[in-house]
Design a protein around this nucleic acid. Structure first.
Lengths: 236, 236
DNA sequence: AGAACCATATTGGTCATACCAAACTGGATA
DNA sequence: TATCCAGTTTGGTATGACCAATATGGTTCT
């Protein structure tokens, strides 16, 4: 929001490098200049150069592994989401945290299936069918089922052809994965989930937004109930 | 995701301070210990302490103004969003960036008005009415109209009673504000916007989700068209 | 020629120390 | 009690040094 009195030398370097990354002067996936070089280039001490790099790293504009040259990484929506990962973890540990996130996911996907029902293209439909088929074939392999389940939902996020949505899906997947990982996954539940997916797809095929939303709602509500019981949370 | 070979001393300090903040051992809104104190406490040099603080600051867990002690700021959803602000700005400068963000906002609010139509409480309704009234009274004061316009949409984000949504609204507001700021705002447009808001509220009052969604769609589509023309972007 | 290998120059990570200016503190003063 | 000032604390920056791991380029072996 406010810019305060920002007289940090590091901020100037951050700004400059940011613009060089954005403009492509610093090519994506290529290493940043050496610290001692930047230090000369900007006429500052290595201290501030390192602070600047640290900031860029936290912003997700460079990927820095210890002992390696930081790699320029032009930001995309996935970067934004993953950069927030650490903080989100804290929020999930607060009471109601998981529920809030899950609820927002239900909200999001309700909208997605409506939109899918209304405007899914042939390609979208065949992607959904393929994902459902893979899902069906994995009913007895819970590990694989999880992946195909997630992939099915992922297709929904692709339908708007807007890069923000797949990034959000990635966020949900990675943030909620820890919860999901410690749940037992039984073939009968896999079957139920597959059938729920099928119901959703059927509704989309019939171009019935209300039915699709309803099917998705039932599906995710049931899944949540299972999560809730497993973690012994308070009811709604 | 991957933990790699994380041998950075600063990371240990970050982790420790993070957990102290989460547990409340470091009280919210209170200043962090002095750098020289942390340095002794963790047995490292001031260099790594400062790097750790910089990381915390970028994560949004402390608020650090130059020359002032960093203030502990327990993360909330708004913090997460605002921490991403810098990167999002870059994405908005890329072709289609603003459009993608705006489209996601339309998507979000379509869902919100549907939900409002279905399950808005009396309190929600009266909040909406109050916001609309304020909106009406500001038609001739474009500065004020912008605020009330935004507030009206903000009420929609409050209806799910989920802290994630208001945070998202804050995100949209701050990210799209720069675009909005440089647009001329005429009383006749204010009036049109007010009437659009009224149509939305009317549909909500009639508990007609489809009509509410439609009204909102018309409203935001029109607003987008205005933005698009102003900035001379390509058509859809 | 191409692959495995090794000595050396780079380079990131950390430490110790120092200086400055702004912020803070507490007691003297009006 | 409110104000003001000097001394202290503290964040921002600069140097310079050392270590260990990496990157590099030439040498040797196959």
């Amino acid at each position: 929001m406010s810019l305060d009195t920002n007289i940090r030398a590091a901020d100037a370097i951050v700004a400059e490098l940011e613009s060089q990354i954005a403009s492509g002067r610093l090519r994506n996936k290529s290493p940043l200049p050496a610290e001692r070089e930047l230090m000369e280039q900007f006429g500052t001490s290595r201290t501030v150069v390192r602070e600047a790099i640290s900031t860029l790293s936290n912003r997700g504009l460079v990927e820095s592994k210890p002992r390696f040259r930081p790699i320029v990484s032009k930001p995309d929506y996935a970067t934004v989401l993953s950069a927030t990962g650490n903080v989100v973890r804290h929020l999930l540990n607060e009471p109601g945290g998981v529920k809030n996130l899950y609820q927002s996911r239900v909200f999001m996907e309700c909208g997605l299936v409506r939109q899918a029902a209304i405007s899914a293209t042939k390609t979208d439909i065949s992607d959904l069918k393929a994902a459902l088929e893979a899902n069906k074939n994995a009913i007895n392999d819970s590990e694989e089922f999880y992946r195909t389940d997630n992939a099915f939902h992922g297709v929904l996020y692709q339908i708007p052809k807007n890069p923000i949505f797949p990034a959000v899906h990635e966020g949900y997947t990675s943030w909620l994965a820890p919860q999901w990982a410690q749940m037992k996954r039984l073939p009968e539940r896999n079957l139920a989930n597959y059938e729920a997916h099928k119901a959703i797809l059927d509704a989309i095929l019939e171009r019935d937004a209300d039915a699709a939303e309803e099917a998705l709602n039932v599906h995710l509500k049931a899944a949540w109930e299972y999560v809730r019981v497993t973690f012994d949370m308070e009811a709604d």
